[in-house]
Design a protein around this nucleic acid. Structure first.
Lengths: 210, 210
DNA sequence: GCTAGGCAGTAACATTAGTTACAAAGGATT
DNA sequence: AATCCTTTGTAACTAATGTTACTGCCTAGC
């Protein structure tokens, strides 16, 4: 585990801290589509992402979904921090976007490490900072952009996260994550295809020039 | 200053910490409508709110505004924290909603107090937690609600913050904060009036039963 | 090969929100 | 009182998004 930690976190954590993490953390490999956190869950540990990607989703009360942002290597989930500190329930859902490797750290260490390691403090605060900014830019896009622009951002980001130019989703799935309807998404996708930006296929979309 | 601090923060901060804050902090009284932070500002201190309320606004690049949330007594601005820690520019604008009293604490103390005082750590983390949740619920309302529902929430919140049932704003001002247009807001307000929920007047709105 | 179920394309329509334009009313100043 | 500016009301229109309904197509499983 030390090895994986050093690879992903070696440049930000002290050696001592990495040793400690390795001692108390549990290493996990999870397949794509695995639900790590459900809304309303109490969370007892925080995840340090080694590889892969996790998507963070928000629900309203009626099962309407909305993609908030992705976590990648070197990230952790601030929401988790927030929830654990406050001992409250999760406000979000977390699902692996790709096969992922991560280390779960028991929550009790948080406080201890915050005092003991400057690098841990920085990590936690940076994490909050980044997540706040991601939330803000998600909010921007919902508040200020129209659906076509949001769809383009979505496709770009999804391609980036999946490291390729093919997106394996149905129109319905995209509609869920953008909180829109299948027909609307199909319509806009078709328009993008006619503009030569993408290629539509059954169950996947190929990105040409977005 | 010790007195004001004790009143607003006595139950969460240790006495020693309050003394320290009083030593390095500067007390400020600011009138309604005063711009505390502009987008792009570098921030050198963090505000502890003693009384009054501050509204936090987001801008897109073209001057379109959006109200994110309010800060009240006992709150601080996580964005500020985030910005200062990361030594980056402010992503938001902060304007006093009512006459306010606050204490500015120089940023250098952050790190020191985080190590030294458990109550400070809790305060900072709680603050992040609350702000994240406020952002989430703002996002919910934009993503999942229609304008009429958003307007009702806005009126309720505004009345609560201003401690009364009268809202001193023009339709245009409301439209800015909800990122809509004056005509749309007038239309919806008129509908609310016809339902007997509010009373419309020039330059102010009286809330009857929302 | 056949078929059921999931997926995508499309048309027609409804609803919501934004825009433009203009009228009317209130309030301040002269 | 006459004038001017701000605020509000309203109509008519456009644009964007969502909804319903139906079609054909693909493909996995029989």
């Amino acid at each position: 585990m030390i090895q994986e930690l050093t690879e992903s976190y070696g440049n930000i954590f002290e050696k001592d801290l990495i040793t400690e993490i390795a001692q108390v953390g549990t290493y996990k490999e999870v397949p794509e589509g695995y639900k790590l956190i459900e809304i309303g869950d109490y969370i007892k540990g925080m995840p340090l992402l080694i590889s892969g990607a996790i998507k963070i989703l928000r629900d309203d009360n009626d099962g309407d979904e909305l993609l908030l942002y992705y976590l990648e290597k070197g990230d952790t989930c601030s929401m988790t921090l927030a929830c654990c500190m406050g001992d409250s329930k999760s406000e979000i859902r977390a699902i692996t976007e790709t096969d992922s490797k991560l280390i779960m750290v028991p929550m009790q260490k948080m406080e201890e490490w915050t005092v003991k390691y400057k690098s841990w403090r920085n990590f936690v605060f940076n994490s909050y900072h980044e997540r706040l900014n991601e939330l803000l830019s998600t909010l921007d896009s919902i508040a200020f952009d129209k659906m076509d622009a949001r769809l383009i951002s979505y496709l770009k980001e999804k391609a980036r996260i999946n490291k390729g130019n093919v997106i394996h989703n149905t129109h319905q799935e995209i509609a869920y994550e953008l909180h829109s309807s299948r027909v609307v998404i199909s319509r806009l996708l078709k328009k993008l295809e006619q503009m030569g930006a993408i290629e539509l296929h059954r169950n996947y979309i190929k990105i040409l020039d977005l």
